[in-house]
Design a protein around this nucleic acid. Structure first.
Lengths: 242, 242
DNA sequence: GTGTTGCCTTGATCCATGTCAAACCTGCTT
DNA sequence: AAGCAGGTTTGACATGGATCAAGGCAACAC
């Protein structure tokens, strides 16, 4: 019930008191979609809205995994670090995505807000209670886990076996598929460093490869973070290693 | 009930008729461990034992994901392929491991028996019924999915950011941790090709790097598939990129 | 014994990508 | 407008692993 000010993350307040879950922008895309409107109050009782400042790391790899999150707006970067600073981004999350499945007793990854971000937080025990009360959640959580695992297999193939060109093509198409209307103009939510750490490359290679793709008329780089896909079939062929 | 002879995989017979689940070698290590002995008959009703010949690919990436499996004995190689033959092994499975979580409508990976293998098969619908009947299964399946996801994050870091030496050190330690008694003598269940495809390297690099580690007295290669870890702390340090 | 077959190792060379360094933007501050 | 500061591009060069090619070794067949 307490508003927990002084927390390192600012708490906007418990949903329970204001019925936020019912009007949640992320509801239809998140695991909460399996729960009827009439039960929203129960759901709200176990969840809290948070605002996270851009750039803040709100999950630290290795810390006790006591909370789970749903992204309600904004973008999140999930990553693992090596002691010398090498970074591997394991995924990006956006509105509706569930965070925390890849955890045992501790988180297996860190998570950082890419821009202004709002989250919905569930405690481990709260989620356990909700799962008991709404068994439909189980299926939805398993689906979420399956989706993530499928995604992980693809990333392993990309990181282990694809060339820089193939990685970039795969990446651009992935971003394309995330777009609701499948626009061919992409607005990338991350910098070159982000792309490099996602694809297991350096920023220089990312830059050079994107320019090479532009020279070959597969894409146009209109702005640094805006790219138009000119030749989808060719990109798809490249992405699969053809 | 039918024995389904003529199947491409030989069926040893339904568990339901012989109470195999009760005496299953894999029970204590698998998701089945959450079900009481008194309910084994129900479990057996929805599962079938299979024997798979060495080398056989019994799950094909892209095929309809109609079944789930538990490994009851032997080792399995899980992998993804590119059209030109590049292969990335995404994991190995052994006794007790659950196969099939990384699937939507179709399997996201292929699976091959590394040696003689026996499996327990569940149909998708059978598993759905079992989950309904034994809700404890849900927790266990989520645990299994979490474990796999944690593992996947580690592999992405390895494939995206580690050097050949670091990959081999990580691999040897992973094999070491899989051993029940943490012996320092490893018997690898796969060939150099298997190691290479697992680590995103070529067989030549695997061979050279293992020999380099031997020259540096971190390991001894007693036989091609048998390796003794001489200096665990140094290997651990190497694996984490120190 | 002598092929034969299927790994595995070793050596020589190549090249895709990393590293290092400088120049170039773009937006922001004063 | 001049000066930063942070990110991006570009160039020159280095190198870790890949590739190509031989040779070694063990298991098995005849």
């Amino acid at each position: 019930m307490s508003a927990q000010t002084g927390d390192s993350i600012s708490t906007l307040g418990p949903c329970g008191s204001c019925g936020q879950c019912l009007h949640c922008e992320a509801r239809s895309r998140s695991i909460c979609s399996v729960i009827d409107a009439e039960h929203m109050a129960r759901l709200a009782q176990y969840s809290h809205r948070l605002a996270v400042a851009a750039g803040r790391t709100f999950i630290q790899e290795g810390e006790t995994a006591s909370d789970f999150f749903i992204v309600t707006s904004g973008h999140v970067k999930l990553f693992a670090l090596m002691p010398d600073g090498r970074r591997q981004i394991t995924g990006f999350a956006q509105t509706g995505d569930f965070l925390g499945l890849a955890s045992g007793a501790t988180y297996a990854f860190s998570a950082e807000a890419l821009g202004a971000l709002s989250l919905c937080r569930f405690s481990r025990s709260g989620l356990t209670l909700l799962r008991r009360e709404f068994p439909e959640l189980e299926n939805r959580l398993m689906e979420e886990a399956s989706r993530e695992l499928v995604q992980a297999q693809k990333r392993m193939l990309l990181l282990g076996r694809k060339t820089a060109r193939e990685r970039l093509a795969s990446f651009l198409l992935e971003q394309h598929h995330l777009l609701p209307a499948r626009e061919i103009t992409l607005r990338l939510p991350m910098s070159r460093t982000g792309i490099a750490d996602y694809l297991g490359l350096t920023i220089e290679t990312v830059s050079r490869t994107l320019n090479a793709l532009q020279r070959e008329k597969l894409i146009t780089i209109t702005q640094v973070t805006q790219i138009v896909l000119l030749n989808l079939p060719a990109l798809e062929n490249l992405a699969r290693g053809g």
